[in-house]
Computed example of a mutant assay.
Amino acid sequence: MNKDRPNAPRNGVNTRLSHPPYDPHSTHGFVNPPVVRGSTVLFESTEKMRRRSELPFTYGLRGTPTTKALEDALSELEGAADTILVPSGLAAISIPLLAFLGAGDHCLVVDSVYSPTRTFCNGTLTRMGVEVEYFDPHIGAGIAELMRPHTKVVFLEAPGSNTFEMMDVAAVAAAARKGGAVTMLDNTWATPLFFRPLEHGVDLSIHALTKYPGGHSDLMMGSVSAHEATARELRKTQMQIGVNAAPDDCSLVLRGLKTMGVRLERHMASAMAIAEWLEGRDDVSAVMHPALPSFAEHELWKKQFSGASGLFSFVLPVGFREASAFLDALTLIGLGYSWGGHESLAVIVDLSDRTIATGPETGTLIRLQVGLEDVEDLKADLELGFAAMAEAGLPS
């Protein structure tokens, strides 16, 4: 947008989502990019083949006009030089780690990271000969003390997965850069609408597009957006591994982006209403939502983020059996591991793999994804859970 008007004012976020940097007149005026499927690209001459690095499309693995349209849209939202697309959020985590780490390197990872990220680090990276070390999400500029001459990557997630700890992203990124490391941040919770990591000194912003950008629980995809300094190595590694996203799925994400702004407003408002309601209950011992004034790092969240999404956690002051009864009684809120779609979901969180950010000492942690349903209906469904939890706690 405004691509032909460099001095034009910057549009609001929903306008930018509705009018991404795709020119409808390049495809006969159709307002949405066409779905271009293909593997083989034909060249006009051997000279064009010889100079194929100068061409936008050379083979289906490198992408099609459909994938390029989504890459451009995400790069614009992130303020990035380039964006790669991959088949899942986990692939969006693993590929940049592979791009910037090798045998003998040291990698610092926040302890409150998404559990599959930890599994990849402890598995594939360790087998590669990478030394992985976890750090406290509250460390801030103190991470400089953990930096070593061979520290090549600092991996962040803000807020922390499942327990939503906040960190001073700019302070960590500055210390990492001074120590010669590349920083990458899983930004799936906030989306680029509420937080733009590259503006805080982070080198790579990672997303599970499966979540809010897709928004309808019908696709799997991930993205990594990068500064110019790191984009080349990122793209090179993607092509060496040989993965890209399917054009049909890219089309679904392009469609999802159009409504992501208004959907996130609904997710945020509903989640806040539910979080405040839960916080006032005697049968809930804690609510972990960064936008709540009572949250320990609320001021740090407010300083860095412009909004909150629909995912947070709360602690039930009971054991696994009673918490299971709570979840099993729900009829509207589903039991599922994803989030960011139209439907509300809940799961019991297992934090047993953590060593520092261990979460609540007592009780059972429930992660809640608040969807697009009516808030009063969700409260009524949760009341069923609380009633079942109380009954399960009675002497048999």
Score class of each variant (00 low, 15 high):
221 M>Q: 06
63 G>F: 00
288 M>N: 04
217 S>L: 11
151 T>W: 02
259 T>G: 03
197 P>Y: 08
357 A>F: 11
273 A>Y: 00
2 N>Q: 06
98 L>A: 13
372 L>A: 07
283 D>A: 02
31 V>L: 03
381 D>G: 01
224 V>P: 10
309 S>R: 11
356 I>R: 10
390 A>T: 08
256 G>C: 04
44 E>D: 10
377 D>W: 10
42 L>W: 09
141 A>E: 15
343 E>H: 12
223 S>Q: 05
215 G>C: 07
207 H>I: 09
226 A>M: 13
147 M>S: 10
320 F>H: 04
104 G>I: 01
255 R>K: 03
180 G>H: 08
292 L>P: 02
10 R>W: 02
296 A>R: 10
182 V>W: 06
194 F>S: 11
43 F>S: 05
364 T>Y: 00
320 F>R: 05
331 T>E: 15
396 S>W: 07
292 L>C: 03
25 H>V: 02
83 T>C: 09
132 V>E: 07
344 S>R: 09
155 F>D: 15
380 A>V: 01
8 A>H: 01
55 L>N: 04
100 F>N: 07
50 R>W: 10
164 F>I: 02
42 L>N: 07
243 V>I: 09
153 V>I: 14
265 E>L: 06
331 T>P: 08
276 E>R: 11
151 T>S: 12
337 Y>L: 15
324 S>I: 01
138 H>T: 12
17 L>G: 07
395 P>Q: 11
357 A>C: 13
390 A>V: 01
389 M>A: 04
110 V>K: 13
130 V>D: 09
78 E>V: 08
186 D>V: 03
175 A>P: 09
19 H>A: 08
207 H>P: 07
315 V>T: 05
140 G>S: 11
216 H>S: 07
388 A>K: 00
282 D>G: 13
212 Y>W: 05
343 E>T: 14
110 V>N: 12
297 E>G: 03
361 E>I: 15
31 V>Q: 01
332 L>C: 10
272 M>N: 11
90 L>S: 13
253 V>W: 00
181 A>E: 06
317 P>D: 00
392 A>G: 04
116 P>W: 14
158 A>T: 13
327 L>C: 11
137 P>R: 13
274 I>K: 02
